[in-house]
Design a protein around this nucleic acid. Structure first.
Lengths: 353, 353
DNA sequence: ATGAAAGCGCTAACAA
DNA sequence: TTGTTAGCGCTTTCAT
């Protein structure tokens, strides 16, 4: 029966607790209050047409017997779960380092919470996870899903499409065109901050590109190119696989080797920029006098560097909130905007360039 | 017993069904395969006593009708969810900055995943969250719970106790003594690294203490004191409320003001140490020549500083894994060790001292 | 080895 | 306004 051995399991060596009895059900409440199940259900769900005497009796009975609704039963009959899954598909190391992901989660949680939905975070960190998360999603555990950093040809995306689960992507993989998404205009943002860097009078401007296999990475490079036009020099671009500090260090070293005269750098993320700044300082370059450097994200990294980083503000929390709102609207039967939702990304100018 | 019996039985799809296709159920599979519901259920759950012909027919039928088990129904009858909740109760800002929390999540997820359990992350970020998470936990959504950074007098802890949900705490608030927990020996670890610092010949050793209202913070200070014995000087201890970079900067400035001769510092966390290093460098002190500094956590901070930080390795991922193992063992009816589980915390000696 | 049927706890449609 | 009852989809005896 329900959880009996669990209770015995952790009541400790000197157990003073009685064995946990069966959980009170709606029937216990009904009997205690002298009414029928139906009436109890009405009170629980706040419906009209309940006499105040009945309501009072039922409320008293509920606290007397310690009744807690069983959501599995409710979900079964209601065909919903009042929960939205947030699937994070990232390599383990990045998860801990990427500040965006935390902010997205927080933003989504706040928005879902306000609508009385439970956010359920699912981490995909292995093949096994992929399969289990797919099962979870197809098991009616969640009414909708927010996908963060989905990959191209993601099996989970396939499952979502197949079962028709309301979904919103944060950023969108190229092979997902039919589904709702929220994001930022990486290309325009990259162009804007590069132009700003150009305007400071730098003449040899390079870029540390990252994650070119994702649209965010590719678009940031494209925006950089847009801004430079004819002055774009492929030799001044160094690409690294991930948005991480360590890559920034090595990439900057490489760039310095290839072009010692470099006087401006656009790093594809703040973490990368922080690494690059380390390398620049080790090479004896002062910032921003010798080299101006700008980043992307406006994460906590940007405030830790010295001088602080000029960067593109990425509204991570807003993205989470917008994604949640999008899923919620789909749950209410609305159709999300076809082109997705793009949030503003103001340039934040600090001391590094 | 209410004595009301009613005939249950499959009434079939009603002829008035709109074109909307309903999800395939076990009954559709049974009909397709020409067997009974019971047999289908046996195949799904991999039980013995099923003929291979029946099994083949059922498997074919499952994929033909696109059957996916409905977990709400299964949970209802099985009285379990095959999911474990991980409750994180942190101020929003810390969540994004604290690398431990991510590692704990990853470790727990890996362990639960291996046991085929789903980890469900619940963030508590407001009053409303507290209430909803409590409801979630009491709603049979999760078979057990891992509590991270619970506070003293946490309402969620109350709920867990009340409903007797198998639980394990990562670290333990003082008012939780009956429940399982995993953690590290902060006091012994702090003592060990301070002794190591003393052994390098430093004579004026100070500490930047943090979070003294939590056991981790208080224990680290106690360990520092243990190591110094008679040489402990309260004037060389500066306390800050949180484990954060910015606090490290200001605390170090204060310490330098009070004792310019200071030549050794134990910071209560790597983030604090990183801040302190910034302040030391601004004050013209070289590390480790003028001042030796050590931290605590062995987080990503420790590798970002220059020189890299000597610190106490906190096995965050291991803590997550151990917590998961503890919950899982309770789920199997075992009693967790009374004193909790303490993980090793080796001192990692790098260049900062 | 398989089928029949009794519920798990709840909501909602229908009667009264 | 309230009671009665038919399921939601599934597992699990109990027969056979």
């Amino acid at each position: 029966m329900l959880g009996v051995k669990h209770t015995l399991g952790y009541s400790g060596p000197v157990s003073t607790d009685p064995p946990r009895q069966k959980r009170a059900t709606i029937i216990d409440v009904a009997r205690e209050a002298g009414v029928s199940r139906g009436t109890v259900s009405r009170v629980i769900n706040g419906e009209r047409y309940v006499s105040s005497e009945a309501e009072a009796a039922i409320k008293a009975a509920i606290s007397k017997v310690g009744y807690r609704p069983n959501v599995a039963a409710r979900n079964l009959v209601m065909q919903r779960s009042q929960a939205v899954a947030l699937v994070v598909h990232e390599p383990a190391s990045l998860f801990a380092e990427d500040p965006n992901i935390g902010a997205i989660m927080l933003g989504a949680n706040a928005a879902l919470s306000a609508a009385d939905y439970q956010m359920v975070l699912l981490i995909v960190d292995s093949e096994r996870d992929t399969e289990r998360v797919s099962r979870y999603l197809s098991g009616s555990y969640a009414d909708g899903v927010i996908m963060v950093s989905a990959r191209t040809h993601d099996p989970i995306t396939r499952v979502i499409e197949k079962i028709g689960l309301p979904a919103t992507f944060v950023g969108h993989p190229p092979d997902v065109t039919q589904m709702a998404f929220v994001g930022i205009d990486n290309r325009a943002s990259a162009r804007a901050i590069t132009e700003r860097l150009v305007a400071t009078g730098r003449s040899r401007i390079g870029m540390i590109a990252a994650a070119l296999d994702r649209d965010s990475g590719a678009d940031r490079l494209a925006g950089f190119r847009d801004a430079l036009g004819d002055r774009f020099d492929a030799n001044l671009v160094e690409a690294v696989p991930l948005y991480e500090f360590a890559s920034g260090v090595t990439a900057m070293q490489e760039l310095l080797r290839r072009e010692p005269q470099i006087d401006g750098v656009f790093a594809a993320s703040d973490a990368v920029a922080a690494g690059a700044m380390n390398a620049l300082r080790s090479a004896g370059r002062s910032i921003p006098q010798d080299v101006g450097i700008v980043g992307f994200d406006d994460s906590t990294w940007a405030l830790r560097t010295k001088p602080q980083l000029s960067t593109v503000h990425q509204p991570a929390q807003g993205l989470g909130a917008a994604a949640a709102a999008s899923v919620l609207s789909q749950l209410h039967g609305e159709t999300p905007p076809a082109g997705g939702v793009l949030l503003d990304t103001p340039v934040v100018w600090r001391g590094s360039a």
